[in-house]
């Protein structure tokens, strides 16, 4: 019987050794993926003036943003109609150049005014992500009940000659 007990002891230890915690996929930024899908939809449902329909579709990002990596992944397989997507990171406001879309991350909100001045000559869609800046932005990411939503300022878009599809308008939170 002693033999039997020692055999069980070994197996019990085996069980303890086998049990471990599951691995957590914390390296993956879920919100960046969701946002990149929104951005791609903005590109598809907004019409830029004809001079912007040639060459690359340029998405500029001011500073670091997890969406940069996601958009680059997307750019490898997707186009905005016939235009290949190019994602450019601007390290500071002075680097901002002509682009179709300029994304200003939450932590760069203080740079909105300066950035707006830089894109003023262009028909660049300004995308921000801070509560309360909807009026000074074109599209502003907001969160409602843990879900990603967006505010859309139709007046600002009209001033830039950017035509928005009704489909996109119907999904947006209107900014008046």
């Amino acid at each position: 019987m002693r033999k039997t007990l020692s055999y069980i002891k070994q197996i019990s230890l085996f069980v303890v050794m086998l049990f471990a915690v599951l691995s957590f996929q914390n390296q993956y930024d879920t919100n960046a993926k969701i946002k990149s899908l929104f951005i791609y939809n903005f590109a598809k449902y907004i019409e830029w003036p004809s001079s912007y329909k040639q060459g690359d579709f340029i998405i500029g990002i001011l500073g670091d943003h997890p969406v940069y990596k996601e958009l680059n992944n997307m750019a490898q397989t997707k186009k905005v109609f016939d235009q290949p997507i190019q994602v450019i990171k601007f390290s500071n406001v002075n680097e901002i150049q002509k682009c179709h879309m300029l994304i200003i991350p939450r932590q760069m909100t203080s740079k909105i005014s300066q950035s707006k001045a830089k894109i003023q000559p262009y028909n660049t869609l300004l995308v921000t992500e801070k509560i309360g800046v909807g009026k000074s932005s074109d599209i502003n990411f907001v969160i409602s009940e843990n879900k990603q939503k967006f505010e859309l300022n139709q007046n600002n878009l009209a001033k830039k000659d950017l035509k928005v599809s009704n489909n996109l308008v119907s999904l947006a939170i209107a900014v008046k």
Binding site: Y28, K33, I34, L37, N41, K78, L171
Partner: peptide, 16 residues
């Protein structure tokens, strides 16, 4: 996370 990773880029906003 797995479901979000597997999302197609073409998904429309209503479905999303």
């Amino acid at each position: 996370v797995n479901r979000i990773k597997a999302l197609e880029y073409d998904v429309d906003l209503v479905t999303l």
